[in-house]
C-alpha cells in the first residue's frame, strides 16, 4: 500500500500538472479513458500509454511509484487475459488497456490531493456517501499506521516468524481483529470530534483554482486529441490500421525530448 507516498506526491510535490485545476485533470482523465475504451488496436492503446508516460516524465513524477501502481492492475489483467481472451493479441490488448487506464488514474492521484479528486463526486452523490468517501482516506492513514504497529509488536514478541507459518497466520489474524476493533473505536472518536467541530451532516471541500488557465486548456485539448485519434482509428480502421505503427513514434519522441530537456536544465 503506497497511500503515504501517493499523498506526499500529491500534496508536497510541485509541477505544471500539480498546478492544473482538479476539474480539468478529471476531465482529461475521462477523455483518455474514453480513448482507451473505444479502441481495440494494440498499437493505439500502447501509444496512449506512452503518451501518459511522456506526461508523467514531464511532470517529474516518481516513476517507480507510478510503474508499481500501474503494474498492480496489470498482474490481475494478465490473469484475466490468460483465462478469458481468445487470442494472444487480444490478451496483450487487454493488459495494455489495464495499464493505460491505471496510468491515467494514477497520474491524477499523484498530482491531486485526495479531497480535491473526490470533491466533484461528493457533490453528485447522496450526502452520507460523499462524506463517507472523504472520511475513508483519513481512516486509511490511521489504520495503516496502526496495523504496522500491531505487526511490529507481534514480530517483537516472536509471533511472526518464518519458521512457524501457522503461528504467524494466527498472529496476523489477531492483529487484523485488533485493527477491526480499533477501527470501530476510531469511528466513534471521529464522530465525537466531528460533532465538536460543528459537523451538521455535510463536509465541504473548496476546490482550488488553476494558476494558469492556458495550461488547463492545453491539457484538456491534448486529451481530446488522444480521444480523436483513437476514434479516428476506430472508425477508419480499414484504411488506417496498416499505419498504426506511426502512432507510438510521436509519444516516444516526446519522452526523449522531455528527458533531453530535463538533462539540459539539470
Amino acid at each position: 500500500m503506497h497511500i503515504g507516498r501517493i499523498d506526499e506526491s500529491a500534496t508536497l510535490a510541485d509541477s505544471w500538472l500539480h498546478r492544473v485545476s482538479p476539474v480539468s485533470k478529471l476531465l482529461a482523465f475521462a477523455l483518455v479513458l474514453g480513448a482507451a475504451v473505444s479502441t481495440w488496436n494494440a498499437l493505439v492503446v500502447g501509444s496512449l500509454a506512452l503518451a501518459l508516460v511522456a506526461i508523467a516524465v514531464s511532470a517529474r513524477l516518481r516513476w517507480r511509484l507510478l510503474l508499481t501502481l500501474a503494474g498492480y492492475p496489470a498482474v490481475f489483467a494478465l490473469v484475466f487475459a490468460f483465462s478469458a481472451a481468445t487470442s494472444v493479441l487480444g490478451g496483450v490488448t487487454i493488459v495494455l488497456k489495464a495499464v493505460t487506464a491505471a496510468l491515467a488514474a494514477v497520474i491524477v492521484v499523484l498530482t491531486t490531493p485526495y479531497p480535491y479528486v473526490f470533491a466533484p463526486i461528493q457533490r453528485i452523490v447522496p450526502t452520507i456517501v460523499g462524506d463517507a468517501l472523504l472520511m475513508t482516506y483519513r481512516s486509511l492513514f490511521l489504520l495503516l499506521e496502526k496495523f504496522g504497529n500491531l505487526i511490529t509488536a507481534s514480530r517483537l514478541r516472536a509471533g511472526l516468524t518464518t519458521g512457524h507459518p501457522v503461528r504467524s497466520a494466527r498472529a496476523t489474524t489477531r492483529a487484523l481483529g485488533g485493527l477491526l476493533i480499533y477501527s470501530f473505536d476510531l469511528s466513534q472518536r471521529s464522530y465525537d470530534i466531528m460533532r465538536m467541530r460543528g459537523y451538521e451532516g455535510r463536509l465541504h471541500v473548496t476546490l482550488p483554482r488553476s494558476t494558469d488557465r492556458r495550461v488547463d486548456v492545453a491539457l484538456v485539448t491534448g486529451a481530446l486529441a488522444l480521444l480523436g485519434v483513437s476514434l479516428t482509428w476506430r472508425l477508419g480502421y480499414q484504411a488506417l490500421n496498416p499505419y498504426s505503427w506511426v502512432l507510438p513514434i510521436v509519444p516516444v519522441l516526446a519522452i526523449i525530448a522531455t528527458l533531453l530537456t530535463k538533462e539540459k536544465a539539470a
Partner: peptide
C-alpha cells in the same frame, strides 16, 4: 443512502469510512 439517512446518519459516516478503509 436514503435508508441509512433515516436515523443517526452523521454517526454512520465515520463508521462507513473506517470499514471502507479496512477493505481497501
Amino acid at each position: 443512502g436514503r435508508i441509512a439517512s433515516r436515523s443517526e446518519a452523521r454517526r454512520k459516516v465515520p463508521l462507513i469510512g473506517v470499514v471502507a478503509a479496512l477493505m481497501i
